[in-house]
Nucleic acid binder design. Structure first.
Length: 357
DNA sequence: ATCACTGGGTCG
DNA sequence: CGACCCAGTGAT
């Protein structure tokens, strides 16, 4: 039994923080792929909400398991996206959309198998923000606690489908089916950019982030790609990571953004952000333009400002600067083992802090 | 010349 | 073993 109030506000178990952790517990930890049925019920959903789990669900389904997904759908509100539903169907999930004026607003996640069951009841939707930076409360029940409740996924499922609701079940084969009209398009420039998304990520840099920035041409140190490694919680800071890897075997999910390197006066239209789902869960921001520039060293603070859905600005503040001291205390999340910290500051406050210098 | 990938390392 | 850290190789 666990309760969390995220992001990192209050957790009954200090080792598990937030909805994402609870979902990892019901869908990954102590679960055998292929055994049982996974459930997702969520009013809202988008691609990045599931990016941590697509590979897990695929393996589960490929080995004989099931995933039943019930989402909100609407022609007038942006409840669930085409992209998340396409992805869930591609990996073999059963997806149902509830089209209702008084909308499906519940968020329940979990699984049932012959030996165990788990339930997560949360305020967090199956979306990037719901999983990371929104303030959300979540309760996890597992095993005997679910039995005590007398909860049954099967009863809940049956009851939902016996209501006189408009339930649509999109399939990949019938793309003209009205079910698809209940979904919104998350692709480039189709989603409006909300005020609360205008934030700047502050990220302290470590050796791996700056080794190639500090390197000289044609040296051993300069080889390989230049990235900043960001937190696994970062997927609500970036657009839908719908680009799959073309070459390799290890699944990755990427997106291309425009990065304005303010310190360099250079704009990169093909800045790549990648979640390495099949390789250590690395989350990388490509920052190749900084190579050889000597502009950042370990301990410095990178400020990545989201200007619009796909446009970002990057500034680096050295540890000695006044701005560093002003911004540093916003980087409240301690991650990794090298003293990396990150956090967010609203853009208007960020620019105010810049203007004072 | 650059970067999409690879596959380890490390610490708790 | 999860999640950042690191050092490349080989494709483009």
């Amino acid at each position: 039994m666990q309760f969390t109030f995220h992001p990192n506000v209050y957790n009954t178990n200090p080792r598990s923080k937030g909805l994402l952790d609870l979902l990892e517990q019901v869908w990954i930890k102590d679960r055998k792929a292929g055994v049982g049925v996974n459930f997702i019920i969520s009013g809202f959903s988008n691609y990045n909400g599931g990016v941590r789990f697509y590979e897990i669900f695929k393996e589960h389904i490929d080995k004989g398991g099931k995933c039943i997904v019930i989402l909100g759908g609407s022609t007038s509100q942006r409840l669930s996206s085409i992209q998340v539903v396409e992805q869930l169907l591609e990996i073999g999930c059963e997806v149902h959309l509830i089209n209702r004026k008084r909308l499906l607003h519940a968020k329940c996640y979990g699984f049932i198998s012959d030996v165990d069951q788990g339930v997560v009841i949360s305020s967090g939707n199956f979306t990037g923000p719901g999983m990371s930076q929104n303030i959300e409360a979540s309760l996890l029940l597992r095993g005997k606690h679910v039995d005590e409740l007398n909860f049954s996924w099967e009863e809940l499922r049956k009851s939902i489908f016996s209501q006189s609701w408009d339930i649509y079940s999109p399939t990949l084969a019938k793309r003209l089916d009205p079910a698809w009209s209940l979904l919104y398009d998350e692709s480039r420039f189709k989603v409006p950019f909300e005020n609360e998304q205008e934030v700047t990520m502050l990220l302290t840099l470590v050796h791996s982030d700056t080794a190639r920035i500090q390197a000289n041409r044609k040296t051993k140190e300069s080889r390989g790609s230049q990235y900043f490694w960001v937190s696994k919680e970062s997927f609500d800071f970036f657009p839908a990571l719908t680009i799959k890897n073309k070459r390799g075997i290890k699944p990755t999910y990427s997106t291309i953004i425009r990065m304005n390197y303010v310190d360099l006066g250079v704009i990169d239209n093909k800045c790549r952000v990648t979640f390495e789902a099949g390789n250590n869960l690395d989350f990388r921001l490509g920052t190749g333009k900084l190579r050889y520039s000597k502009l950042a060293k370990p301990g410095d603070l990178a400020a990545i400002t989201r200007i619009s859905e796909y446009e970002y600005e990057l500034r680096v503040f050295t540890k000695a600067s006044d701005t560093y001291n002003k911004l540093n205390h916003y980087a409240i999340n301690l991650i990794g083992n090298e003293g990396k910290k990150y956090g967010y500051i609203p853009n208007d406050e960020f620019f105010k802090a810049l203007a004072k210098n």
